[in-house]
Design a protein around this nucleic acid. Structure first.
Lengths: 186, 186, 186, 186
DNA sequence: CATGAATGAGATTTCATTCAT
DNA sequence: GATGAATGAAATCTCATTCAT
């Protein structure tokens, strides 16, 4: 692993532990095992590091979900595979997921280009629209449905990380939640 | 309004705009129209101010919900009145609600005494348990149901603040969402 | 003497000894006997300190010359009194004068408002113009004559500080130089 | 042009634009189109580069003046040719001349060996002495006369670069100034 | 109680210089 | 010789907190 990756890894860990401002760049360098100045060769400013980290984590997540999304015309099947893989990724990458949550409620979120966000959300909106057009999903505003699904994802995640569950229990709860969710919106 | 309240008000505004660490105590004092040192007469440290602010906001919210909760034995009625008043409060107190969200994803949350959180959550859990016992609500773990309801609340809030809606539209959407929710858990 | 003045004094000394960039703000604070942060209460940035110092020194010089300028209609008399008092001030304030020279050949000079410079030069140009109008001074461009006089001033200053001279010798040389200068331009 | 020359050229440009300390060695390397470390193959330290640059520029100027100095016993003729060629060089090499000025008012000037300065000044002092011995120039201290001539040179330079003049106007002004100067010291 | 000048520890960032390739 | 990643000392600037008035 090269120094840049070591820095990103260290930053992720410390940001989640102590927050963005609670983490000094010097601590990041120390944790990464590089010199103070080295961090600034790869990232011009601390902000740039935060943004780069967000992009990296988001890509990582998107890639995983993409790979595990069912290739099918069946809306329910596709939606379910996405719901499940989102949660599997989150449970397997607790630190990264916490980072995303932190980032989303920080002033940094305002610095993400609007079209980048659009691109991330678009496919999900299309899928929902598709479900509505086929008469499967209730005729509600697409972004309303999207908001419900997203928040439900966070809800299950929170529940599953609040206590120690076995893999099987996690699996079952996730499946069960999707069923509840599907019933609700159809 | 006395100086303490002015400081709290100023802190709330600036924390939401610039984050906890992005807000210097001197800026808070300035915004509140008091001297630098005065802030520390009322709060020994900045952290203490943050915590006090959280408690104050939470109390404010709890009081409102308490006042608007239906006095009844009917579980659905009570739950609906709570769901609605939570959202009405959030929509009427956007800044305070953002502050709560920020606080929840910050390292500060760890400093809130565990029993304080318990006390806040307890009544809701009891209500749900009550619903289950009466055979109204599906027989699921109480805190799982609680997670679902909470995240649903966040979901509608997010949707309703993402675009400009009229009061009536907001009202209708909230009622509608509760119906979906109720169907899901019963 | 208050802290602000102590800081200005310390800055003046160190800037002349080590240059603007060779002087750390921490050294200035140390020399002034104040804390690091105190400097930044009086001057938002190091640049602001440099500019404030320049303005202060210039005002000091202008005040002295103003006070010692002959109140008369006689152009030669006025010009002579100014030439002399400029040099007396410079010889009595070697450090301040060096600072001005350093400032003038630094990129900082570009940050001085153009009209501030105009205001400083204007009276001298008027005086020269007056001399030309009266047929006393040769009919040359005013700012050319001004350049000649200015550089002559620097020339004598440099000579007089290159070796140890007595006050009387300095006085005589200055008077003599003015006579040469006056002969040259009339 | 080899790398060393490219570095010197880049350094000259950037030093004049941003000052010695305002110019990072990495920027010089970049501007010169060489690697960061290459600069230090040719110059052990940044200071050494500054000094080498000064020597180089000074040599360049001296060479030009030497070449254009009248070969004659006539003191006035020799002096005039030197005065003129100094100014012609300065006007043709504005950047180099600015560099010299910057260098002279910087702490670097103290690092130039005293005898190097002596060697540069000596011929001019001899010439003046020669003029005095022949009864041409007023019987004043040689270095006083030298100071006056030097500063006059700077004075005209400043005037001629403060506005846009044609070559002919520049030429005329320089000749005229020498006449004034000659009248003054003889 | 209220003030605000003063503090100094600590944060981010720069940059001359080195050295393994 | 040439490279450029890596270094770490040092510089500027911020800010929570104190304390004499």
């Amino acid at each position: 692993m090269d120094k840049k990756d070591k820095i990103i890894e260290a930053a992720l860990k410390l940001f989640v532990e102590n927050g963005f401002h609670g983490t000094a760049t010097s601590k990041i360098a120390q944790e990464a095992g590089v010199a103070n100045g080295t961090l600034f060769q790869y990232f011009k400013t601390k902000d740039e590091l935060v943004m780069a980290l967000y992009v990296s984590v988001k890509e990582n997540m998107a890639e995983y979900i993409e790979k595990n999304t069912a290739k099918s015309d069946n809306v329910k099947e596709v939606m379910k595979s996405q719901f499940l893989s989102s949660l599997f990724w989150a449970l397997d990458n607790v630190v990264k997921f916490k980072f995303i949550q932190q980032f989303h409620t920080s002033p940094y979120i305002g610095k993400v280009e609007q079209d980048v966000i659009q691109n991330q959300v678009m496919p999900h909106l299309s899928l929902i629209q598709n479900g509505i057009d086929k008469g499967l999903i209730k005729n509600l505003p697409v972004d309303f449905v999207f908001s419900l699904i997203s928040s439900q994802t966070f809800g299950v995640y929170q529940y599953l990380t609040s206590k120690p569950f076995t893999k099987v229990q996690q699996h079952d709860t996730i499946e069960q939640t999707f069923d509840l969710l599907w019933d609700m919106i159809t």
